[in-house]
Structure formats: structure tokens, C-alpha cells
Design a protein around this nucleic acid. Sequence first.
DNA 1: GTCTATATAGAGATAGAC
DNA 2: GTCTATCTCTATATAGAC
Lengths: 199, 199
Amino acid sequence: MRSRGDRAGRKSAATRARILDQAARLLSERGYAQTTLGDIAAAAGLKAGSLYYHFESKEDLVYEVFRLGVMRAFDHVSEAVAMLGEDASPSAQLRAAIRAHIESLHGQGYYASAGLRIVDQAPPVIQHRQYANQRRYGEYWDLLLGRAQAAGLIAPGADLLTVRLLLFGMMNSTMEWPKPACRSVDQLTGTICRLLYIG
Amino acid sequence: MRSRGDRAGRKSAATRARILDQAARLLSERGYAQTTLGDIAAAAGLKAGSLYYHFESKEDLVYEVFRLGVMRAFDHVSEAVAMLGEDASPSAQLRAAIRAHIESLHGQGYYASAGLRIVDQAPPVIQHRQYANQRRYGEYWDLLLGRAQAAGLIAPGADLLTVRLLLFGMMNSTMEWPKPACRSVDQLTGTICRLLYIG
DNA sequence: GTCTATATAGAGATAGAC
DNA sequence: GTCTATCTCTATATAGAC
């Protein structure tokens, strides 16, 4: 017996997931404005009108992709850091976080790429809701960066909020590079850490 | 006496410049899709239809903003570096270039910000034409980075194309930061150079 | 050179059949 | 749950008056 408003039938859930997957991919590849509901529906094997059974509006759908994007990146990064164990060095933790963040961007079914990179293309309403989600993720990074600075890996005078945003700008931009500049996650992680003298 | 197709009357040139200025500002502030020709025209004190006397299409107008954006950044940066004199150290040159690039983004009537940052929001046709313009600017940076690497400022093994794109991603992202994170050009330059151990 | 008016197209959203 | 058909709105672009 289903409660009122229960849409969690197996088929519905699977279709919803398929829609989100395709939306994440298209948003990441083409940007917000150039991804139409028709495109998303077609990629998911549906017609445009059918999306409205699963989502109230385009904004609603896109926001869900964005939200899942940060969540997945957060999970992936914090798990990678936790796996090092409690007594890992700040530099090992930071390196692991950088690698995991880049992995999230380049893998993970495009969610992280959409939710971290193209947020500024979306209508302001979505942006602000998403910024709240990103904030928690940012605070986690601030912890890592604080430890790194205390350990002397980052110049003592450096403003950590600025450092964090610069680091994000650097990592997130890797998704927008032209093909000739494509590098593996390993190579990107290595170059970033070398550039910052981490590890 | 005017040659055929001559549109260079004083009034026409001034209006065209006003349109471009406002377009650069709006594009930089709102992004490509959310900047309509109506918005641009209104900001320039015109009606939408009037833009077509000066430009063939929206793409045409936007491309001109993009093109001018890289050009101005290039001019500003290369001039700043040249002002240091021929025998300036690689680290002084790199620092001057970083500062000037950031100045171009945050000042310069928004052109550089539009032409460097929101290119990926525009239709593919414009993007590819703009990438060609950006390439020359990139080659100039590769010279600076090559000297810096030769001088030991950048790890010997680091891939310079990657380094350049990371640096650009970092600098360009400063335009997208939320208000609480706003920093002066001096502060941004300082933090970046400290992070990279330059100077 | 700029205006008004309008043609045209595309996208989000809704209604009702199945 | 999904489809077809349609409504509505908005934006680019054009035509012709002034």
C-alpha cells in the first residue's frame, strides 16, 4: 500500500534516474541554456512533456542535478581522505582530496561537473540554493587547508578562503580545456601538487 | 566623400562603441543566454531593432566583444611586462603578468571578463573563432612560463601547457566568486604568487 | 540612424487521451 | 507513466516609416 504522493514505483525511480543521468551529461557538455528539455527527454528515451511527471520544472530538474553533484563530490573526497587513516599527514590528505575532486569532475557520470562548474550559467534562484550546498563542501576543504597551513605547506600569511577558491577555480577549469590539453587524473593531480609544492 | 560601405561617421562609431561597452558589461554580469539584445539596446539607450544597423546578429556582436576582450588583456599584460625592461627577472615578469591579467579581468570595462570567462557559454561557432584569438595570448604566456621554469621557479618536470591552463583557470575564476570572497587585485596577486612561491 | 511593428522560431509548460 | 497536441511567452531578426 502506497502513501499519498508516493512516486517510488520501481519503473518511476529508474526513469527518474535515467533522466537525471542524461541531464547531468548534457548540462555538463553543452551548458545550461543550450540544454533543452527536449534534448534531455530524447536522450532518456522520452518526449519532452513526459518530464513533467517526474519534475515540476526545468529549474527543479537542474537543481536536483546540481545538488547531487556536490553531494557526490563531497562523499567521494571525504571518503578518499578518510581512507588514509587518522594519522595521515596534511600533505597526503590534501593530495588525496585534490585527486578525488578531479576524479569526481571527470568521472561520476558528469554530476559533479554540472554542479560545480556550470552553476553560474543557471538562473539566480538555482544558483543561490546551490551555493548553500557548496558551502558545506567548502568548509570541509577549509579544514584540510587549515591543517596544511599549520604544517607549513601553505605560506602563513595566505588568506585561506582565497586559497580555497583559487584551488577550486584551478581544478574545475580542467573540465573546459580543449582536447589537445586533455590530461589524465594522475597527471593533473601531479602537476597541481608540484605547482603548489605539496607532497 | 565616403567609400561604399563606409559606416565610420562620428555618431555611428560612438554608438557602436557604446553598444559594445554595454554588451561587455551585461555579458560579463549575466552570462550569454541571459543577456538579450533588448537588454543591451536599452542599456545603450536604443531599441532592440536598432542594433542591426551596427551588427549583423547577436553572434556577431558577442564575437566582437570577445575578440576585443582578449586583445585588450593581451595588450595590457604584454605592456606591463615590457615596462619592467629587458633584463627583468623571470619571477618579476611572471608576477607582473599575473597582476595585469587580473587587472584586465576586474577593470577594463568588462571586455576581458567576457572574452576569457564566458566563452564556453556561447554557441560553438563563436567559441571556436575565439579560441583562435586566445591561442596567441596563450603562446605569450608560454614564453613567460618557459623562462620561469628555466630559472627554477616551476618544477622541471611540470607540463607547461597544463600549468598555463591551471593558472588561467585560477585567475579567471576570481570573477565568479561570491561577494564575501572579493579581494583587491593586490591581494589576489599576492596570494597567487605566494601559493606558487613566485617572487 | 533609429524607430515601430511584425514575422518567425524555439522553448517551457499544460491538458487530456491512452 | 507516457504520448500528442497545444498554449504562451520570449527572443532574434526583418521591413518599412521617419
